[in-house]
Design a protein around this nucleic acid. Structure first.
Lengths: 247, 247
DNA sequence: GCAAAAGTGTTGAGGCTACACCCATGG
DNA sequence: CCATGGGTGTAGCCTCAACACTTTTGC
């Protein structure tokens, strides 16, 4: 068989919404290359693993969460393949192809140090999307992988029910709206949003309980329904008809 | 560096519209494994290549076409990464990771035999999307890669100007409509389609010439404009609110 | 009572579907 | 002249943005 050989890694873009901001889980590397830099969690594909198995294993190692790759189940969380990156010089150790995976999770407690004693923390994504503006860059080409993951998440909220993957098993319409507002960095009219999402067949299933305790009228608690796509989509204001974003 | 090593290949899903049908370019393998089976054109990544370089090289080998990966130019054709496939048993020769690329091209003359003397031909995609219904399956997991590519192309026609990548440099509104009808397997009202696409800013640039020779009134010739996204999108009738398709 | 949040009603703007209708050519 | 396809006008439907308004809680 011709062709040279690659090490194959999976890198995870694990996103959540914390304090009204879209955040990504990063680890601070304690080995070369890029020791000291923040990086996406990742690891190599083991001999008997398919890519999604590696991604699910790494996700569990990082968070204890199950990925829930089967779209027919209403599992919490979401895991999907993003893209592959294999520039010849992306890793000084040799040729490494990295497959990016995107994971969406509800807000979790602050992570402890990882199995490899790396320091791990949630970082707001916004400063990391504009490298060179003061913030230190991520290791390898992880700024690009992160940007692709954020683009994908933003796009999929428009026409899918994935926003619910950022919510705990039971949530209110306002919880869901805060997800859209954090991911898109927009404000959404609460009244129209309410009507819109509750009228999509199979998106939100009402539960018997209400949420009390906050100020104002108690809110209905919902759980995810079986719907996966939104017809018609949620529209965010798009700027003009020409955008360079290539999905 | 830990982790076992992979051969890395790129497989191309080259789509075009021929005789009102969406077609894919396949080669008939003349080496093991799967000798005699039809397969997507592909090849291994060379030592100094990035993935998109490999894809562009293979595309040129197969068709002589340039890919045109820069979305800001109005190049003919389109080339984008699809996804990666690395199931442990997908290739009997050992661990091979394959990166799928999607290419969209205008209709071309019937291909000659390839550089490796493989027989090559355009095949309508529809029978290949339902394996097990009489037609022989493609080699490896290429039915899946093809299905992912067709899904992607169908989805992107909705909200992008990619349909023009299936057209020659100059084309009429009817040419463009036939692309949508072939890819989506639907009928579209010619009058509403005309208004819709000509009213999108920067999509179609009128040229000075008209197409005569057919029956009926001569049609305006257009070339692609700089727009890449459609706002609002072209809507195809979607069946219900729950689909299993995960993009 | 008052502020705050949940949820409903209503109205006008704009896009879409469906179709009537005119235009320009080949035969 | 007529069939064929290119292209425009228009009426009704539907959705959405905007916002007035009611409901139900904490303080």
């Amino acid at each position: 068989m011709r062709g040279n050989l690659f090490a194959v890694a999976v890198d995870l873009v694990i996103l959540t919404v914390r304090r009204a901001e879209l955040c990504v889980l990063l680890g601070q590397r304690n080995v070369t290359p890029h020791a000291g830099s923040w990086a996406l969690p990742g690891g190599f594909v083991l001999p008997h693993e398919d890519l999604v198995d590696t991604a699910a294993r790494l996700l569990t190692e990082q968070t204890g969460a199950e990925g829930g790759t089967d779209p027919t189940t209403a599992d919490d969380g979401h895991l999907e393949q993003l893209a592959s990156y294999a520039a010849p010089d992306r890793d000084p150790r040799g040729r490494v192809l990295s497959v990016g995976y995107l994971a969406l999770l509800p807000d979790l407690p602050e992570p402890a140090a990882g199995p490899d004693a790396e320091r791990r923390a949630w970082h707001p994504v916004q400063p990391l999307l504009h490298p060179g503006s003061g913030d230190p860059a991520l290791a390898f080409d992880h700024n690009r992988i992160l940007a692709d993951g954020v683009d994908r998440a933003r796009a999929k909220l428009e026409y899918s029910t994935l926003a619910a993957s950022f919510c705990p098993p039971q949530f209110t319409v306002t919880d869901l709206r805060r997800v859209y507002e954090a991911v898109w960095r927009t404000e959404i009219d609460p009244r129209n949003f309410q009507r819109k999402v509750t009228s999509v067949d199979g998106f939100l299933l009402p539960t018997a309980t209400m949420v009390t305790g906050g100020r104002g009228r108690p809110a209905q608690l919902f759980r995810r329904g079986p719907a996966t796509t939104l017809h018609p989509p949620m529209l965010r204001e798009t700027s003009g008809s020409t955008r360079a974003a290539d999905r």
